[in-house]
Design a protein around this nucleic acid. Sequence first.
DNA 1: ATGAAAGCGCTAACAC
DNA 2: GTGTTAGCGCTTTCAT
Lengths: 333, 333
Amino acid sequence: MASIRDVARLAGVSVTTVSRVINDRGEVDERTRARVRDAIDKLEYKPNLVAKGLRGKRGNIIGLVVPEVMDHAFTSIVNFTMEAAHEKGFNVILGSTHNDPDVEAKFIDDLIRRNVNGIVFSRVSDESRVLRILGKTQMPIVVIDRTLEKEGIQSVVLDNYDAGRLAARHLVELGHKSVTCVTGPQKIALCRERLKGFREAVQESGIELEDECIFEGNFKFASGKDAVRFFLGRDCRVSAIWAQNDMMAFGALKELIESGKRVPEDISVIGMDNLSFCEMVTPSLTSIHYPFDEMCRKAVETIIALNDKEKPESTMVLIEPSLVKRDSTAPVP
Amino acid sequence: MASIRDVARLAGVSVTTVSRVINDRGEVDERTRARVRDAIDKLEYKPNLVAKGLRGKRGNIIGLVVPEVMDHAFTSIVNFTMEAAHEKGFNVILGSTHNDPDVEAKFIDDLIRRNVNGIVFSRVSDESRVLRILGKTQMPIVVIDRTLEKEGIQSVVLDNYDAGRLAARHLVELGHKSVTCVTGPQKIALCRERLKGFREAVQESGIELEDECIFEGNFKFASGKDAVRFFLGRDCRVSAIWAQNDMMAFGALKELIESGKRVPEDISVIGMDNLSFCEMVTPSLTSIHYPFDEMCRKAVETIIALNDKEKPESTMVLIEPSLVKRDSTAPVP
DNA sequence: ATGAAAGCGCTAACAC
DNA sequence: GTGTTAGCGCTTTCAT
């Protein structure tokens, strides 16, 4: 690999001049510029980004930390964050933490030590150690899907309350009176928010949402199946189910079909996230769209703004969900 | 961020000594070692990895390039490659190329300029430009899912011929006489291999595989649906379908159900990749297991071996697929 | 056992 | 316009 010095030597100029033409900075005579360009071509010279990063204190890398790459919602986040980063000329270092605070901490550490321009997080754990590191570092940080207001950290979050309302209103408008909800872990704030929105919108239409019509799942396929078994077991006259993510909705769907129920004729099901698989199951799944693209783009833009020392207007950006109607929901007969 | 010099100053030693204790190299007196350790703790010093990388010519980073993060098979590759890399103490820079040779080239370029320890590729394009770059660089390269023997590049590939045989034998053993196949793009060598294995195993059992029983898809959900419409349209007495990946199998499944066919009672369907979604659709999908974990681990190990200048035994590692039986295949009535 | 000094490849004052 | 020089944070001879 040729270095800037090789180019300088071949072109018969100083390294500074080479640096100038590479970065289009300062005035350089047309003729020398041409000579340098020639030398660069001849040697197929490419500036070393590590050296550049060391010198400039920032190497055009964004760190991205998610709990689990294989979880489809996070796959989307990885995809769109990378897309946004690449567009802006950044590479991304990715890490999957399996929700292990040790791994999280180790990862943040690596990223800081690599002088990345910023870190995009999705769903940081509650572990105080991690939070402390995040609060203390000067590193630009943006958290997706969670607010960390106390530590003054930027976040981009979905309006989860509204997501709940959207789901509820859709079911209520279809005439459903016996609605149920499969939630994510209730210790996660966004799950409580979703449930709150759902409950309030249901109640506004004069229907009570009994506690026994709520099943706490864990966002996984299996707990969607569990929920259906639970609901059907107590035979609580359910005509519609909202699962707080698509994976659980898929589980619910499968369990319903295996139990001989017809969807949506007997029971309507609605999910959340709007994964591409919604269109692939039978019947295709009505879902609440989670605008990952918009959120990730916003997150990357915020990192860049923070890099340029811009103080962002607000510490939290709220993104609006929307309803995508498909074949798994229908009016009550 | 404290630097090595801050530590040296506080401990009253030279930077060399600090470097020695950090890296456990050379003899250091117990007492000074203790002093240095103290200083490190006090300052919460962490060696800067960029500087380390610049000096050492290698920064403990592995580059990973896939065509599309959101394609489930590649999501698995990302997941397992990261896992293996992290275990070995490497970070990974990820890139998604959308099969665009320009993006591919740009990405390789970035990785080389970042002095990564090696690059893991999945499905490089055919573009000569990219191949030329790969052939020329000294960078350790491992290609997953494709052989590049001519350029003497290491690869880890599935035994695709065997995958085809496995699928065929399963169907034949169930008594199927009218089998069909939905292939991936025939310009991709591995698709031809899969078909070859399938065809030969079918023929060995005395059944001919007509050309009109083969549909060329593009690995996407929609082409699975197209294939079924094609087969049912010509009404060619199909009793079993092998799709060369799960996505197309999911498409086939959905189209069959929507056409009023029962799976597996009327028609058996078998996929390939063994994505987690196989268990989530109804009926759950029989599939050929693609051992991504094993392949990715092997790829990372090879990169590391190449780094240590070990000449690997063979230029190609072959991995064996296996059959996972679920509910979408059954004996002919 | 410890340190001084050179250098990895680059950028940016500061001269001229 | 162009060059000299220092320095980013680290490792590594080579002395002592």
